[in-house]
Nucleic acid binder design. Structure first.
Length: 469
RNA sequence: GGCGCGGUGGCAGAGUGGUUAUGCAGCGGACUGCAACUCCGUAUACGCCGGUUCGAUUCCGACCCGCGCCUCCA
């Protein structure tokens, strides 16, 4: 039975979907004005695993992940570049998709954009005004009237008075209340705009998610996710907008992923201490990055260090090594037999506990040990265990590559020369000849040379296999 | 200041009121021409102080330290 930590209740709760066998899930994607950094990657990967695991449990999942393609930062960046905002956003959307593909992130069911849902946004703002939850101010902006929404603060655990007393609320003379937030921004010269009942303008940030989630998932849906930093005010505001608009509960389970850290601090754009996914992929395989992300629980902070990425490399190498030689055979004779099923049950128990991927990893490693242990003496069992290992890893989006291909692949986009496969194999042949004549000096010379080139040899009897490290 | 999260062995990272997490690294052994891979074995642990308990790393309280949100941010 799946349990999910609900950020709203601050407890783990048994997951029960609104409709039997169906899950409707919305996740806040990114604002597309720059390259994805590791923090974005964590969000993509974490919710990809949620998506995959819900499907594994047999749910028909509708997964919506939006793209924010109009906002202040986009407009500013486009102006700096002297290009149209939609040229800028399209470029970064393409790059985001490229990063996601590399990281093994499955496409969501629908990936809506703010600018393609302006009608829905306008409709929602209109309803909020009609119901007295919103008002147009002197400056033309439309604001949400926070004090009208009684349960405001429920998600982030704060109340309106505390927020008002907070030091960082900036006073805006146009707002009735400093906590009110913008739903529709009146046009400023030179900005992209859309026509609306309140004049030319563009949507505020929070409203797009309310509008798009409602459009694609209905008024009330199962899961809403995003980064921890979106809990307040973004998600709090979404609840206020949607529930005020529809009069129905908005979301049953809120899931928030933790941050990536650099030297103990949150990795973020504003602090400037971030690595882009592309930066890291110059030195590590995308799968190593994915492994690194899933090696800690999704709600915990995750420290970015070279050592941790190296650790992911070694660990993944161990798993692929166990899979080597058991490639994609359909035989399932033993797959359903109890010793193997027991591991899969342990794996699911781990995942059922709020997507405990580190615990799930432990099971995968135990399976790997089991394969290695029985490789020679009971190959049929090992084969089926390998099959089961791969099946379980699929839920994490890992170990999908052919083991031999993975282990032969370059772990980094090295500058300079890298030995080609043919050269490596020629050297191995040469070394084998030396070994046959017990010319150990020559044999070791070749092995040392390859080692310097990042190629490790493994002898087993007459055969020698290799991998890159 | 308000709200919240966390401090686990050399590193990373789960978990539990009494029994091996797991991975990497270390040590010993097997395998090997030597290695690598693999297997077997093994050491190192639960921030500090009290309390509850037969027994606490695990529950409760205080304290120290770190982090996050309160402002755009995954």
């Amino acid at each position: 039975m799946l349990q999910i930590y609900n950020s709203y209740s601050k407890h783990k709760e048994v997951f029960k979907s609104i409709e039997p066998n169906k899950v409707r899930m919305y996740v806040c994607g990114i604002t597309v004005y720059d390259l994805c950094h590791l923090g974005h990657a964590r969000m993509f990967v974490v919710f990809d695993v949620v998506f995959r695991y819900l499907q594994r449990l047999g749910y028909d999942v509708t997964y919506i992940r939006n793209i924010t393609d109009i906002d202040d930062k986009i407009i500013k960046r486009a102006a700096e570049n002297g290009e149209d905002y939609f040229v800028l956003t399209q470029r970064y959307i393409d790059l985001m998709h490229k990063d996601c593909r590399a990281l093994g992130v499955l496409p969501p069911t629908v990936e809506p954009k703010a600018t393609e849902n302006i009608d829905e946004i306008i409709r929602m703002v209109s309803t909020l005004i009609e119901k007295g939850y919103a008002y147009q101010a002197q400056n033309g902006d439309v604001y949400y009237r926070v004090k009208r929404f009684e349960s405001y603060g429920g998600l982030s655990g704060r109340n309106i008075d505390e927020l008002r007393a907070g030091e960082r609320v900036d006073i805006d003379e146009h707002k009735e209340d400093p906590l009110d937030f913008v739903l529709w921004k009146a046009a400023k010269p030179g900005e992209p705009t859309w026509a609306s009942p309140w004049g030319e303008g563009r949507p505020g940030w929070h409203i797009e998610c309310s509008a798009m989630s409602t459009r694609f998932l209905g008024n009330h849906f199962d899961i809403h996710g995003g980064g921890m930093d979106l809990q307040f005010p973004h998600h709090e505001n979404e609840i206020a907008q949607s529930e005020a608009c529809t009069g129905e509960p908005y979301v049953n389970y809120w899931i928030h992923n933790g941050f990536i850290r650099m030297d103990g601090e949150k990795m973020s754009k504003s602090l400037g201490n971030f690595f882009t996914v592309q930066d890291v992929m110059k030195r590590f395989r995308p799968e190593e990055i994915r492994f690194f992300i899933l090696s800690s629980h999704y709600r915990s902070p995750l420290n970015y260090t070279d050592a941790n990425l190296q650790n992911a490399r070694s660990s993944l190498s161990r798993l692929y090594t166990a899979l080597r030689g058991w490639e994609r055979v359909d035989s399932q004779a033993l797959f359903d037999e109890s010793p193997i099923v027991a591991y899969t049950e342990r794996f699911e128990t781990a995942m059922n506990d709020d997507f405990n991927t580190p615990e799930a990893f432990a099971v995968l490693f135990d399976m790997a040990t089991e394969i290695n242990r029985h490789r020679d003496e009971n190959p049929e069992y090992a084969q089926n265990m390998a099959h089961a290992l791969r099946e379980n890893a699929t839920v994490l989006g890992l170990l999908q590559e052919d083991a031999e291909v993975y282990l032969h692949s370059a772990p980094a986009k090295l500058e300079g020369d890298q030995l080609e496969r043919d050269e490596i194999e020629a050297l191995i042949t040469e070394r084998s000849k030396a070994r046959q004549t017990k010319n150990w000096a020559e044999s070791d010379r070749i092995r040392d040379y390859l080692k310097e080139q990042g190629v490790v040899l493994e002898d087993s009897g007459e055969n020698t296999i290799w991998r890159r490290e």
